[in-house]
Each structure stands twice: as structure tokens, then as C-alpha cells.
Design a protein around this nucleic acid. Structure first.
Lengths: 156, 156
DNA sequence: GCGAGGAATTACGCCGGTGTGGGTTGACCA
DNA sequence: TGGTCAACCCACACCGGCGTAATTCCTCGC
């Protein structure tokens, strides 16, 4: 355990890892979609610090946007999701039906939903998201500095 | 066959049936998302005439929007969908993966896609759409005029 | 049967909110 | 002290709401 998550990330690096532009990250932070939970910006020149969990959420957002969702919808989804995005990320599928979101774990549940669902369902396999993220973190090491990159003590 | 589809619909009524605003319908027509296939507008005051098939597409769009999709994505989806939205509407599920769309008929195919899919899948059961539409058409009869509502001869 | 008037419908310009990109300035940290 | 990163201002595209002018359709009176 404690594989890595005691690491935190600058705004720029966060954007690179997640695969979004820095502008988006900036905009989302200032419009309260996702704010850096380790350290908020405190005026021009200060540094934002994102946690691993933040990156995870950002990656989910990125996936949702790539799927063609409106940012507005993503905002609403996260209002719900933030309370439920927990341990079972590896196996869960996020299923979104308009304003409502559910976490589904089995394929059968999924089929049920599709059959009963009145509208479009947006389905995001969260396991993939975590995987993608972890890969990106490894590949995008900040620099070939000795051993530790952006290692930081968060005190947890 | 020929259950009803020899009917066509005014812009206003189309908007009511589909459940969108007239503004949207107007905007979509003028930006080439969906144009009335029976009769185009030919200047201020002219009348648009939408076919049943148009309504079907509009209803799909409405569902996609309700699911939180960007209109931009919907445009791209329809570029593909228009060629493939055919008879099997009753049973097919529209599956969207970012830019790509597929029509899927069985639950197993669906699960496969979910497992393999890298990103979000948007799934829309098309059968429901047709059903919703037919209900709305019946419920929103234009007026209690004798028997026939907006019956019209469209030719072949 | 036919013309006139009113109702219905459309096109269009104006506008605002959102999301995003660019560029610049200013603070922070190494 | 220099490089990096956040804030801020600006601009632009998209979506769609509103109001208005223009046109067409429908109905009525003759």
C-alpha cells in the first residue's frame, strides 16, 4: 500500500498528466469545478498543489469531456460523484443518466439499466481511468533528477 | 405499413412534440443540424414542414442533449447516424464513444464494448425514442377538429 | 368565387452566458 | 535573481432567448 499517493502535483504538471490544457485547469479551479486540495492558489504567483485524488477526478472529467459531455453536465455529475467516488474505483462503472449518476459494478446491472433507462446512459469504466492516470504519472516524470521528482510531504 | 407517416408537421408543432424550444429548432435548421425534409423555409413567413423521420431524429437529439452531450458532439454523431438509422430502430441501441458511434443490438455486445471501451460510452435505446415520439404525437393533437389533424399529401 | 384582414409562423439581428485560448503582469521559490 | 506559475484582461465561438419585421395561411364577408 501507500504506493505513491503521498505525492502532489503542480498545476502545470497536473495538466500534462491529465491531458488537458493549463487554461482548462485554471478555469476549472477558478469556477469551483476542481480546486487543488493540497494547496489553493493565494494570489498571483502562488502555487496550486493537486493531490492524486484530484488528478483522478480530473481524469474522469477529461474522459467525460472527450465523450462529448458538456462541462455544465460534468459539474452536476460531480456534485453527486464527489460523495461516492471511493475505494471501488477499480471495478466500478460510472453510469450517468442526465442529472443522475450511479455506480454500477456488474455487467448485469448495466444491462438492466440500459433496458429500463428512458434516455441516454453515459457509461465510464473507472478502472481504466485509474490505469490511464497511473501510466501517465509514470511516463511524465518531471525530470531525470536523481530519485525523487515532485515528492512532497503532505503530512497525512 | 403506412401507419401514419404520411403526416407532416409545422415547426411549432414539431418543437412541442419533440419537447424542445422553437428557438432550438430554428437554430438547428439554420445551422444544418436538422432541416425540415418536407419543406424548407424560403424566407420570412414561409413554412417549414418536418417529416416523421425528422421528428425521430430530433427526438434522438433531444435525448442526447438531455444526457448532457454537447451539441457539437451531436452534430458529429449525426453525420454517421444519418446513414445508419434505419428500420431496426425498435431494437437497436446507439452507442457513442467520443466521435465514433455504433448501433448495437444485444446486451452482450454492449457489455463487450463497456469492458473494452477506453472512455465513456453513451448509450441510447432507440426503441424508447420511437415510443416516446409516437405517444407525444398522439397526445399533442393540434386541435379537436373532426378526425384528421395535420394530414397532408406528400406525394411519393 | 374572391379579395381583405387577422392569426400564425419564420427569418434575423441583438445580446448574454459559458468555455476556452492568448498574452501579460506579478508573485513565489529554488 | 531568474524561471515558473497563477491572475487578470481580452477576444472569440457556440448556443439559444427575445423582439421585430416580413410573409404566408386561414377565414370571413360579400
Amino acid at each position: 500500500m501507500t504506493e505513491a499517493p503521498v505525492e502532489d502535483f503542480s498545476g502545470k504538471r497536473t495538466a500534462e498528466i491529465v491531458g488537458i490544457t493549463y487554461r482548462q485547469l485554471d478555469y476549472w479551479a477558478r469556477t469551483d469545478l476542481i480546486r487543488p486540495s493540497v494547496a489553493e492558489a493565494r494570489g498571483s504567483g502562488s502555487r496550486r498543489r493537486y493531490s492524486y485524488r484530484d488528478l483522478l477526478e480530473l481524469k474522469v472529467i477529461k474522459n467525460l469531456l472527450d465523450a462529448g459531455l458538456k462541462l455544465e453536465s460534468v459539474r452536476k455529475i460531480f456534485t453527486y460523484l464527489r460523495d461516492n467516488l471511493g475505494e471501488d474505483i477499480a471495478t466500478a462503472n460510472l453510469v450517468i443518466n442526465g442529472q443522475d449518476s450511479v455506480l454500477v459494478h456488474t455487467g448485469e446491472e448495466l444491462i438492466d439499466l440500459v433496458h429500463n433507462g428512458q434516455g441516454v446512459l453515459n457509461i465510464l469504466p473507472l478502472g481504466n481511468v485509474k490505469e490511464e492516470l497511473d501510466n501517465a504519472i509514470v511516463e511524465l516524470r518531471p525530470a531525470p533528477v536523481a530519485g525523487l521528482g515532485e515528492q512532497a510531504v503532505v503530512g497525512g
